[in-house]
């Protein structure tokens, strides 16, 4: 068993291209999703290498990273949104696409089940108990996914031009709006939930709470060293409802920088 997934990468590019060709209005979100897919694969490769994972775990992680958002292209084409609550669970849909296109028939049953499980569960708020290979694969993908989402959000929210509303799940950019549960999660040292978002600034705080949802030393290091979370949080206003949560999260980032420990609630 080796780490060569080139044929899978080729298929994914063709799949994305065929859906993009059908998009008649705004294909930019599809381009971003394709870029995101390969960035998550890169993050997964780093985690796998840094943690020293052998086979078949390494192969499971690489394939799951590549396919984790395979349904996003169809989701956008069909429903014009990336919000699962308004369309479909893109994790489950992704498994359906993998089965439909028989992408994993040449893999061992062990790899196939681990990859399908990781794709199905990568977007769940919490994971059920899982066998070891499935759990580790899923956790690698969740960490890699979050690390790249931070990059995307940093580029868009802190960039020079206006951002695409789809990127922030169409949350209102109103600095006075704050979700109480999001702020509570930040102060209590646990990840916030997408369902509690009320504004773009809530999204910034939610992204900062992902520090508490990094499962590997390699992912925690990347979270801090990449600097995306810090920049997203530092852009929150001093006098708004998010200021206290911002300060707590920035202090945690500083603590992790110096100690490599994460204080969980």
């Amino acid at each position: 068993m080796d780490n060569n997934i080139h044929s899978h990468e080729q298929w994914l590019r063709k799949h994305a291209a065929s859906i993009r060709a059908q998009e008649q209005e705004d294909p930019v979100p599809l381009d971003l999703k394709l870029q995101h897919t390969f960035c998550v694969l890169e993050q997964a490769r780093r985690i796998v290498a840094s943690e020293g994972f052998g086979q078949p775990l390494a192969r499971c992680c690489h394939l799951a990273a590549l396919y984790h958002d395979v349904a996003r292209f169809t989701q956008y084409l069909r429903y014009r949104t990336f919000r699962d609550s308004l369309s479909r669970n893109h994790g489950l849909m992704g498994v359906g696409i993998l089965k439909r296109e028989q992408r994993l028939v040449a893999e061992s049953p062990q790899v196939r089940k681990a990859v399908q499980t990781a794709v199905a569960l990568h977007n769940r708020f919490a994971l059920p108990p899982l066998p070891s290979l499935m759990q580790t694969t899923t956790l690698v993908i969740r960490d890699a996914d979050k690390l790249d989402i931070l990059r995307v959000m940093d580029e868009h929210l802190n960039g020079p031009g206006p951002y695409c509303p789809t990127i922030v799940l169409s949350q209102p950019d109103d600095p006075t709006k704050a979700g109480a549960e999001v702020l509570k999660a930040a102060l209590e040292g646990r990840p916030a939930a997408y369902t509690d978002l009320c504004s773009v600034n809530d999204f910034r705080v939610l992204l900062g709470t992902w520090l508490y949802d990094m499962h590997f030393a390699a992912s925690r290091s990347s979270f801090v060293e990449n600097g995306h979370a810090r920049r997203l949080l530092e852009a929150l206003p001093d006098d708004g409802p998010h200021a206290r949560a911002r300060d707590v999260l920035l202090a945690r980032l500083e603590h992790v920088t110096h100690t490599q420990e994460v204080c969980h609630a």
Partner: peptide, 13 residues
């Protein structure tokens, strides 16, 4: 049938 994508899989193939 479901393991190969159900009806959508069938139609795609």
């Amino acid at each position: 049938f479901l393991a190969s994508g159900g009806l959508e899989g069938c139609a795609a193939r």
